[in-house]
Design a binder for these strands. Structure first.
Lengths: 138, 138
DNA sequence: TCCTACATTGGACTAAGTCCAAGTCAAACA
DNA sequence: TGTTTGACTTGGACTTAGTCCAATGTAGGA
């Protein structure tokens, strides 16, 4: 993902300090952060950055397909920089922890035509739920 | 689902006009409504019912497993009364329409132990995304 | 019929996100 | 290198979805 900035420049992005910082934050940590977490980490590197800009930038990255938006049923959306390796998610029903997982099988192939209702199906998202070792251990 | 009220009574639910109305609303329409839509339909039958009660009741129904909470990536959670037939969802990326679908295959079995990270996995939720015929047709 | 624990109410509150007018600045061009 | 300009950023107000709570109402058992 270190060439993310290159790809963005190639797509006509004007490169600003704010955008660079947001990209660095996403690059640096492989956890699934909320917009707010991204914002506070960004503020640590560039104190004047505003919430609006973080939201804008995340939105743009999602549109460009560089970052995935993950909404488990928790409140805030989370952002997943790992957009270029297809994967799914395993989330803890109690504490909300998220892990990337790679199941075998291809759920897209498991949806027969008769179950598509004329939709043009392009994507599938699988979310496993359960308890993480910490939460289950108690 | 017409025996929903019976089941709830059997579980010690105190039966009130408000709860009956919410149950009727969910029973009546098989679409996936937001809490707000449930509320306005409920108001049509029982004008004094409050938003708080609708939220409470929906929350209880979800805890009891009578109703499923569906959060596509849209803003508001949606409620799915069809909790007793396991199924997944197909959602239109443009207009947000939702259909219930029944894929073949068992995604739970597709998650190898090495990909479970010690979690106790109990559930899986599959969301297909694409365009509905109306939105694709344009 | 009375009692009381459970349910409802509505209004204030919170969290997450969007919008916008005004100001700033990256980069194309001369 | 300096100028220009339209894309980008800002912060604060606004919106939407949902929660909380103290006061009030009521279902259902005795």
């Amino acid at each position: 993902m270190s060439d993310l900035l290159e790809r963005l420049r190639g797509r006509g992005w004007r490169m600003t300090a704010q955008r660079r910082v947001v990209a660095e934050v996403l690059d640096g940590e492989h956890v699934h952060m909320t917009a707010d977490e991204v914002h506070s980490r960004a503020v640590a590197k560039l104190p004047e950055i505003s919430r609006a800009t973080v939201y804008n930038t995340l939105g743009e990255l999602v549109t460009l397909g560089e970052v995935l938006e993950v909404s488990t049923d928790k409140r805030a959306k989370r952002y997943d920089p790992n957009a270029h390796r297809p994967h799914h998610h395993l989330v803890c029903a109690r504490c909300g922890a998220i892990r990337d997982v790679h199941p075998t099988g291809n759920p897209l192939a498991d949806l027969p035509d008769t179950e598509r209702f004329g939709f043009t199906v392009s994507d599938v998202e699988v979310t496993y739920r359960g308890l993480c070792p910490e939460c289950a251990g108690a």
